[in-house]
């Protein structure tokens, strides 16, 4: 028997996802817009799936919001065929979608980002990978040879200590860290800004994904194009998926810098910054980031360094094993 699809999941996808280049001109809801709608639904004792029924939807919306907004939600939720076609098309390449309404939604993101977490994640590869103890590695795209070699070696060391490596999948430091990790039989995850649809079948990824050693995920739909805004928004997911984060090289501005300062502010995971002479690195250390030696051979065991340093110096971090399921859980739509 075909299992019934989770209708809350389908409703969230309809509201928050785009399904291709020629989707309807109704704009999918942003995270904030979706949160607001979710609040209204809760107040009316409804769940997202109730929006699938045209009569119930129209009644609810007419009592809750402006006609323009109601029209937008109606148009979004009428895209059922388009959605099922897109899910099928993505599924051909092994791409899955998971929503905040589901158990399978990455637990760390749910817990650490709470209301800030994207309602939908898309991905390819084993989602279990996202639950392993993990090290995030970040750094600028235009890092020098030395920084790249460092990132690669760091990825390898993480693999040796059974830490999954999480990065943004960009060229430069991100790819070097993943490469180093996979070369030493480790597991890695990249949070992509764009291009999941083609990355899922790219020759250099296929085998690793099929082996369960590489997962590619994205809060943006698989056929979305690259935007700088999305790249910024993506950083927090990289850090939120890790227990510890290392910035290999940062400038005083740009993606790595803003991601690092944002992480320092929110403390999703403890931030280590390579103690090099780079300006950005020094500034991040001054703002409270923890140092990691500039040469890896000075470190005996990564985990020891991370655990000792973060408990000694840092403000308490809500690590995934140290706390019971936190307030984020109430956001799940399954009750």
């Amino acid at each position: 028997m075909t299992p019934d699809p989770d209708e809350n999941k389908l409703a969230i996808l309809l509201l928050c996802s785009s399904f291709g280049a020629h989707d309807s001109d109704a704009r999918p809801l942003s995270v904030a817009e979706f949160n607001k709608l979710e609040g209204w639904l809760r107040a009316a004792n409804l769940r997202p799936r109730d929006l699938l029924d045209p009569a119930a939807r129209d009644t609810f919306l007419s009592e809750t919001t402006t006609p323009e907004h109601a029209e937008r939600i109606r148009r979004l939720s009428e895209r059922g065929f388009m959605m099922s076609h897109a899910l099928e098309r993505w599924g051909q390449r092994g791409i899955w979608a998971v929503t905040r309404a589901e158990e399978r939604y990455p637990a760390r993101i749910r817990r650490r980002l709470a209301q800030q977490a994207a309602p939908v994640f898309y991905g390819v590869g084993d989602p279990e990978l996202l639950a392993r103890p993990a090290l995030a590695v970040a750094g600028s795209r235009d890092a020098d040879e030395h920084a790249l070699a460092y990132a690669c070696a760091l990825g390898g060391r993480a693999a040796d200590e059974e830490l999954a490596v999480v990065t943004g999948g960009a060229r430069g430091v991100d790819r070097a860290a993943i490469q180093g990790c996979l070369e030493r039989a480790g597991a890695a995850c990249a949070v992509l800004v764009a291009g999941l649809y083609s990355a899922a079948v790219a020759a250099h990824n296929r085998e690793m994904i099929a082996d369960g050693r590489l997962a590619l995920i994205s809060p943006f739909h698989p056929e979305a194009g690259f935007t700088a805004g999305n790249a910024m928004a993506r950083n927090r997911y990289v850090y939120a998926l890790a227990d510890w984060s290392v910035i290999v090289r940062s400038e005083l501005a740009g993606g790595t810098w803003s991601g690092g300062t944002e992480l320092l502010k929110h403390g999703w995971s403890s931030l280590f910054v390579r103690a090099s002479e780079d300006e950005g690195n020094r500034a991040l250390l001054e703002r409270g980031a923890l140092p990691i030696p500039a040469e890896l051979d000075e470190i005996d065991r990564l985990r020891t360094l991370f655990e000792r340093t973060s408990s000694a110096r840092a403000a308490p971090v809500r690590g995934h094993r140290s706390k019971p399921p936190a307030s984020g859980e109430q956001l799940t739509l399954d009750s």
Partner: peptide
């Protein structure tokens, strides 16, 4: 077979 998979994710209200 593609149509079958398509039906699987089609909201029940269609």
């Amino acid at each position: 077979q593609r149509i079958v998979r398509l039906l699987r994710n089609l909201p029940g209200t269609i």
